[in-house]
């Protein structure tokens, strides 16, 4: 009897959770990560802009972060409802391509404004930034990994096993130092205050004063300048160069709305999409909009060298680098 009651309660509650039915327009389903669709992310503005021209209903489905997004797609396989997947980065595209789920974009040559040449017939970049250590203006902060390891600056990083920036730092050091990477990590070990599960924990702890610098992006200070009128947060330029994060989207080959999906990818590299990115995702747009970037973005540091593994290299380097990281910090 109790059981029937519980089931009844659950069923009675169901209609509240069901989404409103679409009104006859074709529905384009875009899988993305959670912060993209949040009220403060690019999602809402982009949905409005695309629906104004597509005669369709754009529906976002959110799953954690980029890695969770790919995991979900792998769980669903060919039965996935996704037409477009938006929010993978270059560390995931190798594994993503291997699933065989993605189609070619056929966009032709797009004039991207990125520090690297982009040639990929499957994944279309929509924004990018450099990983960087963010600290406080005026503090005397080391400007390369060796100096950082030798200093007594306290740093906060994220775990590469659960966080995208954490994995980025692993590849950054690997790309800059190759076989010496483990030695670099051993030097950093006593500077690392702690390792957090995700970016939010580390950044929050940094703002509360738990460390001198935190692993984030070169574009992070733009938020403080633009939204808070606070120019005390700065990214520290590193002489080894900075590792890039490029965020990409692609269509699902088996989608029955492949035309619409490709329309979306094409829309993605236009001003209407790109102009939303800087002050919602706090990244550089992949194609600079006609009006340029917001004011605060021009005061950011611009690294001399951009580091980036190709998709295949990244996949291999990751396992080696993770092993070295665990050895260096695990003792």
């Amino acid at each position: 009897m109790f059981h029937r009651l519980a089931i009844f309660a659950a069923l009675a509650a169901l209609p509240l959770a069901l989404p409103a039915a679409a009104q006859g327009k074709p529905v384009l389903t875009v899988y993305t990560y959670d912060s993209f669709v949040s009220e403060w992310g690019p999602g809402p503005a982009i949905e409005t802009a695309f629906e104004a021209i597509c005669a369709c209903d754009l529906q976002f489905v959110a799953a954690g972060d980029g890695a969770a997004l790919l995991a979900r797609l792998r769980l669903e396989g060919t039965r996935t409802k996704a037409d477009v997947v938006l929010g993978l980065d270059t560390n995931l595209t190798h594994a993503a391509a291997e699933t065989g789920l993605f189609g070619l974009h056929g966009l032709g040559d797009v004039d991207f404004d990125m520090p690297v040449e982009w040639e990929d017939d499957m994944f279309v970049p929509y924004d990018w930034s450099y990983f960087a250590f963010v600290g406080t203006r005026g503090a005397d902060l080391p400007t390369d990994f060796r100096a950082l390891g030798a200093s007594d600056a306290k740093i906060l990083i994220q775990d590469p096993r659960s966080s995208t920036p954490g994995l980025g730092l692993l590849l950054w050091i690997k790309a800059a130092y190759g076989d010496e990477a483990q030695a670099i990590w051993e030097g950093l070990a006593d500077n690392i205050v702690t390792v957090t599960k995700g970016w939010s924990e580390a950044y929050g702890m940094f703002l509360e004063g738990e460390a001198d610098i935190v692993l984030s992006y070169t574009t992070s200070p733009a938020y403080h300048v633009i939204a808070e009128d606070d120019d005390t947060k700065v990214a520290v330029p590193f002489s080894e160069g900075h590792y890039l994060q490029v965020e990409v989207a692609a269509s699902i080959a088996s989608s029955d709305k492949i035309e619409l999906a490709n329309d979306f990818l094409r829309f993605m590299v236009t001003d209407a999409f790109q102009s939303v990115i800087p002050t919602t995702n706090w990244m550089y747009p992949a194609v600079t909009p006609t009006g340029g970037l917001p004011e605060g973005f021009y005061s950011l540091i611009v690294p001399d060298t951009a580091l980036l593994f190709g998709a295949d290299e990244a996949d291999h380097a990751r396992d080696v680098a993770l092993e070295e990281w665990l050895t260096a910090l695990g003792r």
Binding site: A17, D34, S35, S38, W40, V61, A62, W199, G204, S220
Partner: peptide, 20 residues
């Protein structure tokens, strides 16, 4: 498989943090 339009309070808290 969280529903983007149906955030609970803890999820909203994480979203705010993720948005700086």
């Amino acid at each position: 498989f969280a529903d983007p339009g149906q955030a609970t309070l803890p999820l909203l808290l994480y979203r705010l943090m993720a948005a700086y």
